[in-house]
């Protein structure tokens, strides 16, 4: 789906969402019950660098300060983080991390953060946007990946051909929406043939509570151990603390 088609289907009551020349999405929209949803995001498979991250975090903090109470929708079709000397020189990790923190602060303050992955995303950009929302949904055809295979080949010192072969059979490692969804990263894949507004309303009406991604990952078979390991460590910490 194109961004325009997505916005039309999500916000039949009208919206003012636009994309700037850096590929950043900003705007507001009317949703069910006369409420206002705020919208940010990254479009056109644009990279997320220090300048872009700072613009997005500024907007999120303005919304927190204005005590906005509608949902905050984060639309994502991005490249990875911008891979450049300049961005790393000036501390990209801190800019991306700050954006994720602002999103979590907004969520804690009552603006439910909803990620909608409608295109590509990768690596640090994925963590700082889509994965930093309280609930992430995807549209069919979304293409999340942790790292492109040529970079993986360089880092793992494995031949690209071998990686491509393994990528076909190994969900925990291979790029793609189905594989990410199995780990629990994606709450649901929406039906593009049905109005997105209804699916958003149903999602917003559902109970939000805690980080359920490891439980989903266990149920879907993509992360067999994570939920149990986290729970056991937490229990051990509680026991040790009680006994201290």
């Amino acid at each position: 789906m194109t961004l325009d088609a997505i916005l039309a289907s999500l916000f039949p009551g009208g919206h003012s969402v636009t994309t700037d020349d850096r590929g950043l999405i900003f705007g507001t929209a009317s949703i069910n019950g006369g409420r206002t949803a705020n919208v940010i995001g990254v479009a056109n498979r644009s990279p997320l660098g220090i300048d872009e991250a700072a613009s997005l975090s500024r907007r999120v903090l303005e919304l927190v300060e204005s005590k906005a109470d509608g949902p905050l929708i984060v639309l994502v079709d991005s490249d990875s983080q911008r891979m450049s000397k300049r961005d790393e020189l000036l501390g990209l990790s801190q800019y991306l991390s700050h954006l994720a923190q602002c999103l979590q602060l907004a969520d804690r303050g009552g603006q439910r953060t909803v990620g909608i992955l409608y295109g590509h995303t990768a690596a640090g950009a994925f963590i700082a946007t889509a994965l930093a929302t309280s609930v992430l949904v995807a549209l069919p055809g979304a293409e999340p990946e942790v790292m492109d295979l040529p970079s993986m080949a360089r880092v793992t010192k494995l031949p690209l051909d071998v990686l491509k072969e393994k990528a076909k059979s190994t969900p925990v490692f291979a790029p793609g929406l189905d594989n990410l969804a199995k780990t629990g990263a994606v709450h649901a894949v929406w039906d593009a043939k049905k109005p997105l507004a209804q699916q958003l309303a149903a999602l917003l009406a559902s109970v939000s509570g805690g980080d359920e991604r490891d439980r989903l990952g266990r149920e879907r078979g993509g992360r067999p151990k994570a939920a149990e390991v986290a729970a056991k460590v937490a229990e051990a910490a509680a026991r040790a603390s009680a006994g201290a």
Binding site: A123, F126, I127, L131, A132, V146, M147, M152, V155, T156, P171, V172, F173, A174, P175, N179, L180, K182, T183, G184, A185, R213, G217, G222, R223, A226
Partner: peptide, 12 residues
């Protein structure tokens, strides 16, 4: 990278 999807999500 050998368990990239699980690792990425763990970070989040």
């Amino acid at each position: 990278l050998q368990e990239a999807n699980a690792g990425e999500l763990a970070i989040a």
